[in-house]
């Protein structure tokens, strides 16, 4: 994972060099004098060799210094301080909600394979994973805010500031964000369950005279959870991506809306920080997944012991 983070950080750093034109112009506009240009050029250290610049930048990053935003002329860290927690909070909450619901629907569909309820769940899940998230958001907003007026259509409040407000504001974004995850996990659980049900050890379980409940919930489900847990990291990474849309739809002041603004104004330091942070969160999720994996799958422990 360390190596992966290094590769990412280098790639992220290279974004500046890939920029057509020049970072200085991007920062200060095209109408600056040659003198200012040279000064800023030197100040930014652009006259130093690439690897040295990378080293310096990386050292800064490790100390929590992501540079200065071209657009707002203030440290990137200060910009992100209030925003990143919101995005991470939304993503993790949505994942935590999507996980059990997805597994539940998946198991129901698999157990009733070929029956009506299976068809309904499968079709809904298929449709939900094809719907654009932002559109679901607008749809919800149209119904619950515009037509019914039940829920606020924008904003974000932390629970300790105003709990009621927090819940109300959160309902639509979380539904919107987790729906895709629920659908995906449900589909995966279903196919994974059906795969397990066909295995020899399930036949062995039946041949022992166990009840249907133990066969399904002990022998099948435990095995089916392995691939689902292994993709938890990927899920979280999707959620972070998805929260960008949700933040944009519901005007939530998270990292997503900042990133969008940074991109339109080519504010590279902000982009760099955002990419690096999302990658870091995903990496952390991957490591967590690996740890969880050991809990679900006893085979892993073995290979590591050998």
């Amino acid at each position: 994972m360390l190596i992966v983070m290094l590769i990412i950080s280098f790639g992220v750093f290279m974004l500046v060099s890939l920029l057509p034109g020049d970072a200085v112009y991007a920062m200060l506009g095209d109408t600056i004098s040659q003198e200012t240009y040279d000064m800023v050029y030197h100040e930014l250290g652009l006259d130093q060799p690439l690897l040295l610049r990378y080293g310096n930048w990386m050292l800064g990053v490790l100390r929590g210094d992501f540079g200065t935003s071209y657009q707002f002329h203030m440290p990137v860290v200060d910009l992100l301080k209030t925003r990143v927690p919101i995005t991470i909070f939304l993503s993790i909450l949505a994942t935590l909600i999507a996980m059990p619901l997805g597994v539940l629907f998946g198991v129901i569909a698999a157990v009733h394979r070929g029956k009506k309820i299976d068809t309904v769940i499968t079709l809904t899940a298929n449709a939900c994973s094809c719907l654009p998230q932002f559109w679901i958001g607008i749809f919800l907003m149209y119904i619950f805010s515009v037509q019914l007026g039940w829920l606020p259509s924008f904003g974000f409040t932390w629970p300790w500031e105003n709990f009621g407000q927090h819940i109300l504001e959160l309902i639509m974004p979380i539904i919107c964000l987790s729906i895709d995850g629920i659908a995906g996990i449900a589909r995966q659980t279903r196919s994974s369950m059906l795969e397990s049900i066909r295995q020899d050890y399930v036949r062995t379980a039946w041949s022992k005279g166990l009840t249907e409940r133990s066969v399904i919930y002990i022998h099948t489900l435990k095995n089916s959870m392995i691939p689902i847990v292994s993709l938890l990291g990927v899920r979280l990474s999707y959620m972070v991506g998805g929260s960008i849309f949700v933040e944009s739809v519901f005007s939530i002041p998270g990292m997503g809306s900042l990133l969008v603004r940074a991109i339109t104004s080519k504010d590279i330091p902000v982009v760099q920080a955002c990419v690096l942070l999302t990658a870091f969160v995903t990496c952390a999720a991957y490591i967590l997944t690996d740890l969880l994996y050991v809990l679900v799958d006893p085979r892993i422990k073995l290979t590591q012991k050998d």
Binding site: Y201, T204, S207, G209, P298
Partner: peptide
């Protein structure tokens, strides 16, 4: 899947299958 059949399976008639590698549950 009923109780009578379950009493026969395992209780009256035990069965061993061909594939030793896949016939036991790997997570139990």
């Amino acid at each position: 899947k009923g109780e009578k059949m379950r009493n026969v399976r395992g209780g009256r008639i035990g069965m061993i299958f061909q594939e030793p590698m896949t016939s036991l549950n790997p997570v139990l």
